[in-house]
Structures are given as structure tokens and as C-alpha cells.
Design a protein around this nucleic acid. Structure first.
Lengths: 186, 186, 186, 186
DNA sequence: TATGAATGAGTTTTCATTCAT
DNA sequence: TATGAATGAAAACTCATTCAT
């Protein structure tokens, strides 16, 4: 299936960027790892940053608030949030490495930063939808927003922790916490 | 006070590393920004990475669990957490930039990763101490840990969000949420 | 009428070579500007230099001394020279850009240099013919040659001046000067 | 005297740029020709174009209208103009090559174009001064300007002609012509 | 303790040209 | 007659690091 050379290059880039970071990975190494000549990398991706942008556009899934219904179960916010996390695969390796890159480069490349912001707000909206479907009552919008932001922050924060070599925390803890808080407010 | 050339170099490095990342900042630029000759940078910091390590060792404050007492107020977990955040200056610019660096480079440099882990666990311990002093009852250790991890994750996550150009969230939201959750569990 | 792809390619090359120079214009850019696929450029013009050569052969008009009669008016050398300039369109944009190219590349490509020389001597012959038809008397051959060379040099020099952003001088000044000189010598 | 490495690099650049043109000369070749490592070229001249700019600033002599007095002789405009040409060394090889470059690159690099314009207007002013000192009468300003522009245009035009392999015309022809014209007008 | 010229390996990027289809 | 993916040599430029002074 590696007939598609463009795909092979993206595969190599994803792997190497995640391993060593964007700046520390040379385009020459990407080419070598992909078994492609150096020139071909620039044939498909005129600037090095286009390699990263293509990765984000083509491999970071966009999140649709409608997905909320597939995981939400009335009366079980904690379980629903855990299922949401699993559905999105936020804890999976491929997604993690990609997000690691996004974090790291967002400070340097505005186009990357924009995508990080979009990713986050999509996740927050999705989380709010899940909360709405799980808690019986109508939630105070502010509390709902705080809860969603908190949950998402913890989920995304795992990219940093994972990289640092610590234990990769699962979603259960924050899910339980958010659930408790939301239910406590009636 | 900038008679100290070594300090001037570290100041410049801190600023530039936070702005553009470690890899993308040349030692020449650090020297220029510090108003020092290029040779002097290598006189004080034989390898480039030593600049970063010195920054972390000398400018990332260690957190002492004893500080908990100075902000905790029985019966007001939310307010106490907000005060804790302010005490540590986690939202302040200088601290944020330094943490931005740590985040970004922890994937690439093991020595940096180690420090990130240490920073995080120090903060978690401190947060747990605050919770103990604020909630009247003895908390379930697991819940307490989850609450502390969640709060810390959100606090640290601000470094990413800030960088990405989004609104820098304050500590009030997560503090309220954690407070609600912890009190809900009696 | 641009069904003719070859013509479209030459049009694009002419424009781009004049704007940015031969070396600084890539064949890919020529193809893009012409709306043609890259391969087609090399189908018609096997080497890049063939593009330039074709331009010179097909678009640099050769000058026939017989044209002198159409502009010369006995007793009015100055006016005749101005009309000559207009006839040849030396001040016109398309001619100017082409000559700009010839100037620039003649140092680098011998084949181009040869054509510049031919262009110049054709113009000098034409100018001499005009002078002969305008001045009543038989001119000293040396003076006539000097006058013609001077007029042509100024005309051609406009390509440089124009490019440099200065005011594009018209033909009236040098025409008057040459006329004065030639008539002064009886 | 080639202890000065910077000078050696400039020497090499001047020679090669004149020979092959700016674009066609690689910085690597400049370094090799100068016997310097590639990096040193960029140490002194951060961008390739800076090499050219330094050449123009340091090696193209500025012309002072006061120099007019040293060549002008009342009653001998033609001879004075020839002496002016010799004084300025406009026909000399080193000056010619440098001006060749200026011509060629002025279309592409605005900073170079600016210098070409300045060079030309300096020469025109100088030529006008010479005419004033040589012709006994007060010249019509317009005629004087036309005469000066014409003389300068021919002088500068030699750079093109010389490059193209033709005979390098001397200053005598145009000097005589200008002289005749100016004197004819009383 | 200070300095800045020097070095060369390495980086991103460009591009004319080829060639199978 | 047309096409566009493929190639690799070479370009400009960067930079950590060394070292004589």
C-alpha cells in the first residue's frame, strides 16, 4: 500500500515529528525514512511547515457535536465522559503524538495555533453536549462551560504528561470529578 | 543591575526560548539580545542545552507543601485554590513562559522532561495539602488525588492555551468545580 | 487566439524574463504563467536557453535601411530622428523589455551577445541612412558614424534607465543634439 | 596583502560577478576563488546580495562636481570631455565590470537600481559643470542638460557594448558631437 | 574573564531536466 | 502532441562550537 509516495512521506513525517519534534527533524530524514528522494518531499509539500499542516488537516479528526448522542447515557455523566474520551481516541498513541506536535509548534506557527484553538473549542462543544444529555436537569450555562473546559483541559494535558515519561492518566478521574460537581449543583 | 552579564544572557535566553522555542533560537541571537559577545555565551554555558538547564534550575521555583497553610481557609476550598494559584504565580507571565519552554522541550530533552514531572508532582502535593486544610472532613485519598491532578492539569494547561492566542482562562472556574466535587462527596 | 500553447509559453517567458531576469525565472513559473503543464515547455523548448533564443529570433524585429525613406524629411534631421525612434517602437514597452533581456543576458550567453551586436549595427545603419536623407550636404563619414552611434547608444540606453525607475527620456533631446552637431559641421 | 580575508572575498566576487553575472555566480564559487571557507562569506555578508552592495558602496567611486575644474579647458569642450572620461576611469576594465553588474541587477534589486540612478545623476551633474567651464557663453539650461545626458548615456552604454564583444568605443566621438552641438547654439 | 573571527557540517529549498504514459 | 510525477545536484543560508588572543 505504500505505492502512494505522498502517504509514505506523511507517515514518515508523523512518526519523526512525534519522536523528535518538528524543528529537530530534517526534511532529509523524512525523505530517507519514507524511502523517497529529497526532492519529492518538496514536490508535494513546498515548505517544511506544509508537511505539518497537511498532517493536521488530514489526520486530526474534526469533532461533530452530534457524536454526543452515541456515548451519552442519561444519569451516568461519568461513564459517558469516559466513553466520549474513548470514542475520540484522545488517549490513543497516534492522536497523542499529533497533538504533542500541535502543542509544541503552536507557539511558533500561527497556522498551527489556529488549529489547536479550533480543536479545543470543538472538544468543549462536544463535552457540553454530552453533559446536557446525561444530567437530567438544565445546567447553569456557566457551570456547564467550566465543567467542559476543565474536562477538555485535562484530556489535552495528557499529551504533555505522556511525553514527559510519567504515567498516562486515564479519563476516569476527571470524569468522576466533573460528574460529581455537576450533579452537586442539582 | 545588569552588570551581571551572565544574568543578562539568561534573561535573553528566557525571553527568546519562550517566544520562538529552544531549537529555533540561535545562540547568536541570545548573545545579541543580551548585548554580549557570542563567545561569552559559550564561556558561561559550554553547550546550548546548558542555557536551558540553567534556566530551569535557577528560575523554576520549587514548591513547598508548607505553603498550603498560607492560603487555605477552612470551608472555602474554591477561594483557597484561587489564592494558591495566585501565590504560585502560575498565571504570571514569567512563570508561563518558562513553563511553555518546559512543555515544548520535554519531549526532546530527557533532562527537561524530568523537571516537568517534578514540577507537576510538587504542585499536586501542594494542592492536596490545600484541600485537606479547607475541607472539613477527611477526604477519600483517591478523590483527593483526582481533584488535585485535575486542578493542576488545568492550571498547567493554560501555558498552551495562552500561547495559542486564546483567552487566558483564570483559576476561578476549575477551583469552583473542584470545590463542588469535593464537597459533594461529603 | 491563445489556442496556440507555444505562443502562450513564449508570451509568459517574455514577460517574466523582462521582469525578473532569465536566471531568476524558473521554467516552472513560465509554465504556470502560461497555463501550460511543465512538460510542455520542454516539449517545445528542450533547454531553457532555447526559450530565450526563440524569443530573440521571433520577436526582435530586424531593421531594414530602406525604412529610412519613410521617416526622413529633408531639412529636418531632428524631427526625422524622432520619427525613426517612433517607427522602430524603441520606446515601446514590448521592445524595451526584450532589449532589457538582451542587455542583461548578453554577458552570460554568447548567442545572445551576437544578437545584441547585430541589433545595434542594424540600428546604426538605419540612423546613418536617415541622416543622409535629411541633411542636404554630403556628411563626413566619420562624423556621420559618430552621430549615428551616439543616437543609437542613447536610444538603447533607455532600457537600462527605464528599468532603474528613473524617468524614461524621450528621443527629442538627443535628436536635437545630433541634429545641431551635424548641421554645425556644414 | 591578502591577509584581509574580507577583501579577498570581495575581490573574488567582483571578478566572478563581472565574468558570469550575479545570479550565475554561486557563493560557494566566490569562497573557493577567495580561498576562504563557505561560512566566512556569510559571516561578512549575511545575504548574497550584500556582497554586491558592498562592492558598489566601497568600490564605485562617488563623483564630485568639483572635479570638473581639473579637466575643463575654456574653448575646448571636446578635449575636456575626453579628459573627464579618462579622469573618471569610466572606460577602465574594473569600473566597466562593476557597472555591467549594476546594469544587469538593477532590474531585479531595488537597492542596486537606486545606486545606478545616483551614479548617473552624479555623472550628469559633473558633465554639466564641465560644459559650463568650457563653453564661453551661458548655455541654455535645457540644451546643457540634453548634452550632458547624451554624453553620459553613451559613456555608460559602453558597458553593454563591451560585454557583447564589440569594439569598445572611445569617448572622442561623442565628445566631439556634443561639443559641436553646444557650440553651434552659440 | 572576554572576544569575535573562523569553520564546516547540516538545513531548507530550488530547479532544469527526464520519462513513462 | 501532452502530462505531471520523479530526481538529484546544487543553491543560499544557518549555526553550534572552537580557539587564538
Amino acid at each position: 500500500m505504500t505505492t502512494d509516495r505522498r502517504t509514505a512521506i506523511l507517515d514518515a513525517a508523523e512518526r519523526l515529528f512525534a519522536e523528535s519534534g518538528f524543528d529537530a527533524t530534517s526534511t532529509a530524514r523524512v525523505a530517507a525514512e519514507a524511502g523517497a528522494p529529497k526532492g519529492l518531499v518538496f514536490y508535494y509539500f513546498p515548505r517544511k511547515i506544509d508537511l505539518l499542516l497537511a498532517l493536521l488537516d488530514e489526520r486530526l479528526p474534526a469533532h461533530d457535536p452530534a457524536e454526543a448522542a452515541t456515548v451519552a447515557e442519561l444519569g451516568d455523566p461519568a461513564g459517558s465522559l469516559v466513553r466520549l474520551d474513548r470514542l475520540l481516541g484522545l488517549g490513543e498513541h497516534s492522536s497523542l503524538t499529533l497533538r504533542t506536535i500541535v502543542f509544541r509548534e503552536s507557539g511558533t506557527h500561527p497556522e498551527v495555533a489556529r488549529r489547536l484553538l479550533a480543536l479545543r473549542s470543538g472538544l468543549v462543544a462536544l463535552t457540553e453536549a454530552v453533559l446536557d444529555l446525561t444530567v437530567g436537569v438544565v445546567l447553569d450555562p456557566e457551570l456547564r462551560s467550566q465543567a467542559a473546559h476543565t474536562f477538555v483541559a485535562v484530556m489535552l494535558d495528557r499529551a504533555s504528561t505522556g511525553r514527559a515519561g510519567g504515567p498516562a492518566p486515564d479519563a476516569a478521574g476527571p470524569a468522576r470529578l466533573v460528574s460529581l460537581a455537576v450533579q452537586a449543583a442539582h
